[in-house]
């Protein structure tokens, strides 16, 4: 009997570990397959490519994770990205005459400020006026997009400052060693900071507590409204940062950039194991989810699979990830 019990415990433990690593395992399996099926998948250059491609969605997904952890949702990320991008572009463009060209660093700060303000408006309305996040950010999706068109008059902003473009196209080269593209460095840095905030600072505890049970959090003395306000402002900031990177990468402030990017961001968060009802989910899962989506997109491109199948594939993975959750917890119907 005791033997039986301990071996059962062993196998439970093993299963639990397997469960924790499920996305990582899926990712590894896909990478193994791709490296066998294509010639160049497993090259440093390609892996760096994939990371660079996911850095924009990665930034959006970090903000989205914070928001979904509180039980909310942000549908306006793509529009805030576009707005932050064109504001920055307008200040580093020689062709955009309405505002002066300024130092690229200051221009980026202005763009980030613009995105943060939009996110803060989301947060303010949601926390103070009790508009549901879905409705508020749906409204912001339209408002921010419209503001982007008004600001740009519907035209792409081109002829951007060469130094500025480095942030999207250049490499981080400490002591002359070419290490990683700037977008990747910025994404990983943002991820690291977000991780520290979420798991090593009280703010992170409060985010989980608000999503776990807002009423209980309030009675425990947490300023729930402030936490909600902050996560939306953070999302706005990260969206604008993603917009800056995308602008520098494509060498133009495109008013139609980021359309329907919210779907990929939500998908990454969900695949990463974060519960849509809030309070549950690891940030590292989001990182893996982001990379998984990127690897699949890139891999299917290289395998010459039609983009239609890519969409089906992505959908299956999202639903599959959530279904796994269901099977794992079937004892608790």
């Amino acid at each position: 009997m005791p033997d039986d019990a301990s071996s059962m415990q062993e196998s439970n433990k093993f299963r639990a570990i397997l469960w924790e690593l499920r996305i990582a395992i899926a990712l590894v399996l896909i990478c193994v397959y791709l490296s066998m099926a294509t010639d160049h998948f497993l090259t440093t250059r390609n892996l760096i490519n994939v990371l660079r491609q996911v850095s924009v969605n990665g930034l959006l997904s970090i903000g989205m994770t914070f928001i979904i952890l509180t039980g909310g949702i942000d549908l306006s990320v793509g529009s805030m990205l576009a707005f932050g991008g064109v504001v920055t572009a307008s200040f580093v463009s020689n062709a955009y005459k309405d505002v002066p060209s300024i130092n690229p660093f200051h221009a980026i700060c202005l763009g980030l400020l613009a995105g943060t303000v939009l996110g803060a408006v989301n947060g303010l309305v949601i926390s103070k006026m009790r508009v549901t996040p879905f409705i508020m950010t749906l409204g912001m999706l339209s408002i921010a997009r419209g503001m982007t068109y008004i600001y740009t008059n519907g035209m792409p902003i081109t002829d951007l400052d060469k130094t500025f473009l480095q942030i999207g196209q250049g490499f981080f080269e400490p002591w002359g060693v070419r290490l990683l593209p700037w977008p990747v460095v910025i994404f990983l840095l943002a991820f690291a900071i977000a991780w520290v905030v979420l798991y090593r600072m009280k703010f992170g505890r409060y985010v989980y507590a608000v999503g776990g049970n807002a009423r209980s959090a309030r009675i425990s003395g947490i300023n729930v409204g402030f936490i909600i306000f902050m996560v939306y402002a953070i999302s706005g900031f990260l969206c604008a940062l993603a917009g800056v990177l995308l602008t520098a990468r494509t060498s133009a402030g495109l008013p139609q950039a980021g359309v329907s990017y919210e779907l990929d961001a939500i998908a990454a968060v969900v695949i990463g194991g974060t519960s849509m009802t809030g309070g549950k989910g690891p940030l590292i899962g989001t990182l893996l989810g982001v990379i998984l989506i990127g690897v699949i997109n890139s891999g299917l491109d290289q395998l010459s699979v039609s983009s239609y199948y890519q969409q089906v594939c992505k959908g299956l993975i999202i639903v599959g990830a959530v279904m796994l959750d269901y099977f794992q917890s079937d004892g608790e119907r």
């Binding site: 294509t38 090259t43 494509t250 890139s298 010459s304």
Partner: peptide
Amino acid sequence: LALMENWLTA
């Protein structure tokens, strides 16, 4: 941009 990057790899 992403598509071309992937093609250049392949």
